[in-house]
Every structure is written in structure tokens, then in C-alpha cells.
């Protein structure tokens, strides 16, 4: 709560927070606020322009897509998919990355050597190729897209958290606890973890934005979430061929991605300013 209050002091941070709350609200309340069923097609009304444009239909505020589904409703439901992609990717990658970072940073030595080597290895793979291979091998589905994204984004967590842990480990209060007989697990998870949580939050916002953007890349390359599922990246990729004819098709999902990325980014920036001014530049 205190954190929230302090965050609100930063103008950009509070704008970011506002956008994020809006995003969460949209996703949670999608069935209530969406004017139409996002899966309901009506071919006869396909490619209707937004309601304020000539040929627009007041029923379809942002117009309809290639098979006559309501774009506004799909964007609203798309918030769920994009949030799910972002949150699940961050959760999976975060858990794995933080765990590796903790182990490497805390134990050092051989364990750390292997953690570092793993990080170096993953860092060398161009993410999109790895994600592409993973999806092609496992098959296209929402879950596999998340797996592919997580498989490439844990590295930043591991790298940064490892560095932080190494720094904290040497501090006095840890040494004191150890002298009092605290076990490794207790030190790692009860003492060190809370101290790196601020970095974790900031990293999570960065990786969240990356996940959303990369999901759109994967749709672009034809290995994203299945086309019937309303995802912003998928909608954007699907309508890109018609950007010269019907700009609105790509514009609104693009704006949705842009604003949510912007919001999470701004919130992350605010958090960084609050918590640790150095962390962001390292990721």
C-alpha cells in the first residue's frame, strides 16, 4: 500500500498503473462489457468500417474483421489472451529464472558455473528461432506459445537475480543469521528472496511487455495462437495484409498492444525509480 502511494507520486508511473488497472478490468469483465460474442461471425457484415466512418454500423464501434466478427469485442476478449500470455510467461520464466539465479548466486562454485553456462547458452540463441522451433515441434496452441516464450525469457531473471543474490549474500545480516544456525533454504527463500523481490517485479514488467510483443511476432510468422482465438498479436498479424486498404483492421489491435505495453512499461519505470534505479538498465 505504501508502495502504491509512493508510486502515485510519479506522474508517469501512475499513468502506467491506471492503464494496467484498465487492462485488468477489461480482461476480468470482458463478458460484461463486450457488446458482441467475439467468436460470432457474420459474413454479410464483414469488414464494416468503424461506426464513425462512411459505411460504418453503429452496432460495431470499431468495425468488423475478415469474417464479420466485432473488432471491439475481440480486442476486449483479446485482453484476456494477451494478459494470460504475458502473466503465464512471466510466471513460468520468473520461477525458473529466479530459482536458477538464487542457486547460482547463493552457492557459487560449480553450481554457479553451470548456471552461468546455461545463461550464456540461452543468451546466444536468437529468441524467435528457438520459439519457432519449439512451436513447430510441439504444435500450435496457446499453451505451447507460452512455453516457447517462457523458454526464452527466463534468462534475464536468472542473470539479474544471480547478481543481486551475490551482493546480498555478503551482507552482514545474512552472515548473522547463518551464525545463528539458519539453514540454506531458510536463508535463500526467507531472507534473500524478499530482498530481491523489487528487482523481480521490475523484471516481470519488462518481460511481460516482451512476451506480448513476441507473441505478435510469432503470429506474424504463422506460429502464434490459433487464428480463431482472439489475441491482439494474432489480430494484428492477420490484418497486416490489408493495411493499405483497411487501416483500421490493424490499427486497433496495434493500439491495444501499444497501450498495454506502454502502461506496463511506465508502471515498471515507476517501480524502478522507487525501488532500484539501477536494475532496469541491466535487463
Amino acid at each position: 500500500m505504501i508502495l502504491l502511494k509512493r508510486l502515485l507520486k510519479y506522474k508517469s508511473g501512475s499513468i502506467g498503473l491506471l492503464i494496467v488497472i484498465l487492462l485488468l478490468g477489461t480482461a476480468l469483465l470482458a463478458p460484461l462489457i463486450a457488446p458482441h460474442d467475439p467468436y460470432q461471425q457474420s459474413l454479410r457484415k464483414r469488414l464494416t468500417p468503424p461506426s464513425w466512418m462512411p459505411g460504418g454500423d453503429p452496432d460495431y464501434f470499431l468495425g468488423t474483421d475478415l469474417i464479420g466478427r466485432d473488432i471491439l469485442s475481440r480486442i476486449i476478449y483479446g485482453a484476456r489472451v494477451s494478459l494470460m500470455v504475458g502473466v503465464c510467461t512471466v510466471a513460468l520464466a520468473g520461477c525458473f529464472g529466479v530459482l536458477l539465479g538464487l542457486l547460482g548466486g547463493y552457492y557459487g562454485g560449480k553450481i554457479d558455473y553451470w548456471v552461468i553456462t546455461l545463461i550464456n547458452m540461452m543468451w546466444s540463441f536468437p529468441f524467435i528461432l528457438l520459439a519457432l522451433v519449439i512451436v513447430v515441434v510441439l504444435g500450435t496452441s496457446l499453451v505451447n506459445v507460452i512455453i516457447a516464450l517462457a523458454a526464452t525469457s527466463w534468462v534475464s531473471f536468472a542473470r539479474i537475480i544471480r547478481g543481486e543474490v551475490m551482493a546480498i549474500k555478503a551482507r552482514e545480516f545474512i552472515q548473522a543469521e547463518r551464525a545463528l544456525g539458519a539453514g540454506d533454504l531458510r536463508i535463500m527463500f526467507r531472507l534473500i528472496l524478499p530482498n530481491v523481490s523489487s528487482s523481480m517485479f521490475v523484471l516481470a514488467t519488462i518481460e511481460f511487455v516482451r512476451a506480448i510483443i513476441r507473441e505478435s511476432f510469432m503470429s506474424f510468422l504463422g506460429v502464434g495462437v490459433p487464428p480463431t482465438v482472439p489475441s491482439w498479436g494474432g489480430m494484428l498479424a492477420e490484418s497486416r495484409a490489408f493495411m493499405l486498404v483497411m487501416w483500421w483492421l490493424a490499427a486497433f489491435p496495434g493500439l491495444a498492444i501499444f497501450f498495454s505495453a506502454l502502461g506496463v512499461n511506465l508502471m515498471g519505470d515507476g517501480l524502478r525509480d522507487l525501488l532500484d534505479p539501477r536494475i532496469r538498465s541491466k535487463a
Binding site: 467468436y39 461471425q41 469474417i67 480463431t228 492477420e238
Partner: peptide, 13 residues
């Protein structure tokens, strides 16, 4: 022909 492909999926649903 992605539009038709998706339309078919809609009809089947």
C-alpha cells in the same frame, strides 16, 4: 485463404 478457413471454423462451431 485464411478468411474462408476461419469462416468454415465458425460455421462448424
Amino acid at each position: 485463404d485464411k478468411s474462408v478457413a476461419e469462416a468454415i471454423s465458425g460455421y462448424l462451431t
